[in-house]
Simulated scan of single mutants.
Amino acid sequence: MISVLLVDDQSLLRMGFSMVLDAEDDLTVVGEAADGATGARMARELRPDVVLMDVRMPGTNGIEATERIVADRPETRVIILTTFDLDEYAFAGLRAGASGFLLKDTDPEELVAAIRTVHAGDAVVSPRITRRMLEMFATSLPSEPAPVDSQHAAPGRPGGLTEREHEVLLAIAEGLSNGEIATRLYVSEATVKTHVGKVLAKLGLRDRVQAVVYAYENGVIRPA
């Protein structure tokens, strides 16, 4: 069973999420909290596998709570949920250590799939959020990506990535899944998975979300 903690100041939303998750054979809601401080404390006590975290709450917000949870228990995965497409806390939440960022109007099936994905060690970022983040950072990103001129590691690429690994990093930053990356690069999903692992290892990153953050912060992507 995947244990889930709900942290949201709206009781009706918590009730709705609870009904959706408890209907799944492999998911169980182990607790609910109405603010970030209580959520962080309950995460420490209940040791859930996944926390669904609201952003805007009275007192301790979801960003601060996420930082506490990740620091206290790194194995607990946090998925941040928000009502807003362009939330000023979105990027901060991912930097705080969240493994996912979804909108609250996400379909129940997508939410359930996201919980299973982050529990398996991967990360989830809504493509809508990825596009919005690109818009947010477009003015500060370089007009051209780092030069790519060979299949071997080059100083111009972050972390000494090869050309193919650099292409995979760019695709991750766009919010593409392994299947979509495989289609773009004309390789198998297994090959993409291998490249993703090498990118994360070379850059010292935990998961795909951190790869997205890294790409934005280091200007390795070119806005459309």
Rank of each mutant, 00 (worst) to 15 (best):
V199W: 12
I79E: 11
G159D: 03
A33H: 13
D207R: 09
A113S: 12
V187W: 10
V20N: 10
E45R: 12
Q10N: 11
S150K: 02
R68D: 06
A33Y: 14
V187F: 07
A90G: 01
T194S: 13
Q10F: 14
V20I: 15
K202V: 03
R68C: 00
N61P: 01
R41K: 15
R56L: 12
E64M: 04
A96F: 13
G97Y: 07
A173L: 09
Y214K: 09
V7W: 10
A154N: 13
V168T: 12
G36E: 04
Y89C: 01
A211R: 15
V209L: 12
D35E: 14
R73W: 07
A146K: 02
D49P: 00
R128A: 02
P108W: 12
T38D: 14
L170C: 05
G160W: 07
A153E: 15
H195P: 00
R184H: 06
L134I: 12
A201M: 05
L170Y: 06
V209Q: 09
F137C: 03
L13H: 05
E24F: 06
P155S: 14
G36R: 04
D122R: 11
R206G: 00
N178L: 06
V70M: 11
L203A: 07
L176I: 02
N61S: 01
S18E: 14
V29G: 01
R208E: 13
A98L: 08
G219Y: 10
A173C: 08
I79K: 06
A90L: 03
D8N: 14
I2V: 14
A173V: 00
I181W: 05
A40S: 14
R131L: 11
H152I: 13
A40M: 08
A146M: 04
E110A: 07
E174M: 08
L27M: 13
G16I: 01
H195W: 15
E163K: 10
D122P: 00
T130Y: 01
R206M: 03
E110L: 06
V4C: 02
G197V: 09
E32D: 11
L27A: 05
G16E: 08
P127G: 02
S177N: 11
L111M: 13
V50C: 02
E45P: 01
K198W: 05
E163Q: 11
G156C: 12
L185I: 04
A114S: 13
N178V: 10
L12H: 10
L86G: 01
L134G: 14
R222M: 10
S140V: 15
L21R: 07
V4F: 08
R14Y: 01
V125L: 14
L46A: 11
L176D: 12
L27V: 10
L5G: 01
I115Q: 09
G62T: 03
R157E: 04
D26M: 04
R73P: 03
T60F: 09
V124R: 07
D107T: 02
A171K: 10
L200Q: 11
V220Q: 02
